[in-house]
């Protein structure tokens, strides 16, 4: 509709510091996992930093790739949900409605990026961390799927602010927690429908690729890197 949110991540700038991961945890009330659970693959990281190695050991070059929900236009997770818990909203966001989810986890299996996280138990926070929850983000019950929302609460706030002041949202006004906290300024967020926005220009630049593009999922996260 009026917006089509997208993100560009400059892999040449990313240092792999994981500030985005920490910021996301704090912003989105992600449940904490103890080491045993984390070892079982049950830790929650709506954004994670994948590591790739180039060259032969010891002569290697490390490359980092932050992977979050790609907010696909044709998302494989959507049609398989029996209860419409995951669906596409008018702004092209791939949203998850926790209350509708019955926990079949089909969407999780059908996500080629493995960015969907399941609440295996009721979430718990060690004291006093339950006091620092973000009031704008709901706490998910046990047994439902969750994933990156592009910080939809920040998008909503920006829209409300703009409406109250009777103006359009300016480019760069909405910043998800990961974008805001990136010290290398590798991440850019904005409206892909606005050809003048920074993210549109980056997406149109020759450096942009998309992850597993050949699957036809049409992700809205663009990775920028030097053309080889």
């Amino acid at each position: 509709m009026e917006h089509r949110w997208g993100m560009a991540i400059d892999l040449d700038r990313c240092t792999g510091c994981e500030a985005c991961v920490a910021a996301c945890h704090a912003e989105n009330n992600l449940p904490l996992s103890d080491p045993a659970e984390a070892e079982k693959g049950r830790a929650f990281h709506w954004i994670r930093v994948d590591r790739y190695y180039e060259g032969e050991f010891p002569d290697i070059r490390m490359k980092y790739m932050p992977v979050l929900c790609q907010q696909c236009e044709d998302a494989p997770c959507e049609p398989v949900c029996p209860t419409y818990a995951t669906y596409h909203n008018a702004e092209g966001l791939n949203v998850q409605v926790y209350n509708r989810c019955v926990g079949t986890r089909y969407c999780g299996n059908n996500c080629p990026y493995s960015v969907r996280f399941f609440n295996w138990f009721e979430p718990e926070w060690p004291e006093p961390l339950e006091l620092q929850h973000n009031p704008d983000v709901s706490i998910r019950p046990g047994g439902v799927m969750e994933k990156c929302t592009f910080c939809i609460q920040r998008i909503q706030r920006a829209k409300r602010d703009a409406k109250a002041e009777d103006r359009a949202i300016t480019d760069g006004e909405v910043q998800p927690a990961c974008v805001q906290s990136c010290p290398a300024e590798a991440m850019t967020f904005g409206d892909l429908d606005d050809p003048e926005s920074k993210v549109s220009r980056l997406a149109a630049s020759g450096r942009a690729t998309r992850l597993l593009e050949d699957l036809g999922t049409k992700p809205k996260v663009f990775y920028l890197q030097r053309a080889k």
Binding site: E73, D74, E78, P79, Y84, Y87, H88, N89, A90, G92
Partner: peptide, 14 residues
């Protein structure tokens, strides 16, 4: 009707 973005709301195949 819910907003489904790109998904067809009724499809014979599926």
């Amino acid at each position: 009707p819910i907003v489904t973005g790109g998904m067809p709301i009724f499809s014979w195949w599926s």
